[in-house]
Simulated assay, not measured.
Amino acid sequence: MIKVTAIETGKARMKTAQRTGRDERGPVGRKIDIFRDPNWVDPLPILCFLIEHPEGRFLVDTGDTWRNSVPGYLPGWNPFYRQVSIRVAPEEEIGPRLRDMGIDPARDLSAVVLTHFHHDHTGGLDHFPHTRIIGPRENYAVSTGIRGMMMGCLPQRWPVWLDPELVVPDGPAIGPFPGSWPLTNDGRISLVPTPGHVAGHCSVVVQGDDVAYFIAGDATYLQDNLHAERTDGVTNDPATARATLRAIKTFATQQPTLILPAHDPDCAVRLATKAVFA
């Protein structure tokens, strides 16, 4: 039996222009829109997903950290960080959340899987010093150094021991996705390429007993945006981001599928009621 659980690790606020970009705007125009936008969305969850599988427990993304509140933790020279607001209490980090579930984050997971390396997906890495860390090679390549710092990553804050297993989803096609990278021997958990939000972004497909779970990371912020094929304001490649949304929709119409983005406040309800994409 396979079980998927959403775990909230604090809240994020963003501009409306970040959550949903204007269709006619290119990558630069979308960034300008975010800076000019006076409107903020209501606080959104920062979600990780625990997959319990006969071969072990797998965590997708690690959420963010309370250290966002410490002056100097976020680079002051990058004005992007003033366009988002992260609120995480120490006990809301992924480590305490897992311990509340009776899971030792340092010892009880088979792997941590990162959809991409943005700070609100890697902020909890410190809790997993003895765990296999897996991430997409293409995204890692644009997430390090100054380039990464400019693109919403904090490589200077990653644990000194971090040496992720970088993978390329060049295995068998899954539905409309041209490749995959299996996480389990039975192939029921796989990474698939979902670029657009950032280069090299991946999502995790879980083939459950009666439904599929599509753990989307930031491929879309909301299921409603997926329905409407509305891309976000962060993307530097709106055409690729839109093609990814269409691929996810195709996958979700080929079999009953729960769509689980990392910042969608309805994920927990969809999981509880098994409300599949329609």
Rank of each mutant, 00 (worst) to 15 (best):
S85W: 09
H53V: 09
I32P: 00
P45S: 08
V41R: 11
V41I: 06
P71K: 08
P71Y: 09
R36C: 10
P45K: 10
G63H: 06
R82H: 13
F35S: 01
P54Q: 02
F49M: 06
Q83N: 14
T62L: 08
N78D: 12
W40S: 04
Y81H: 12
L74T: 09
S85C: 06
F80Y: 15
D61A: 11
R57L: 11
D42T: 13
R87P: 00
E91R: 13
F58L: 15
D33Q: 05
F58G: 01
I32M: 12
R67I: 01
L44H: 05
W40H: 07
W40A: 01
F49I: 04
V41P: 00
G56I: 08
L47Q: 15
N78V: 14
K31H: 12
I32W: 11
L74N: 12
D37R: 02
D37M: 02
W66H: 15
I46T: 13
P38S: 06
V41D: 14
P79F: 11
R67H: 13
W77F: 15
P90N: 11
P79N: 08
V41K: 01
P38V: 05
V41Y: 04
V84N: 01
D42N: 13
F80A: 11
R57P: 05
I51W: 01
S85A: 11
E93K: 03
W66I: 01
G63P: 10
P90W: 05
I51S: 03
G72K: 04
V41M: 03
I51Y: 02
Q83S: 12
H53M: 05
P54I: 03
L44R: 15
P90F: 07
K31S: 08
I51F: 03
P38N: 08
E55C: 09
Y81A: 10
W77K: 08
E91T: 10
K31G: 08
G72Q: 05
P75C: 04
F49G: 01
R36L: 15
L47C: 01
G63D: 08
R57Y: 03
L50H: 05
I32F: 14
L50F: 07
Q83E: 15
I34E: 13
G63L: 02
E55P: 07
R82S: 13
R87H: 12
G76P: 02
G63I: 05
G63F: 04
D37Q: 02
I86F: 15
R87S: 15
R82A: 12
W40F: 09
C48I: 02
E92N: 04
F80Q: 08
L47G: 03
F58Y: 15
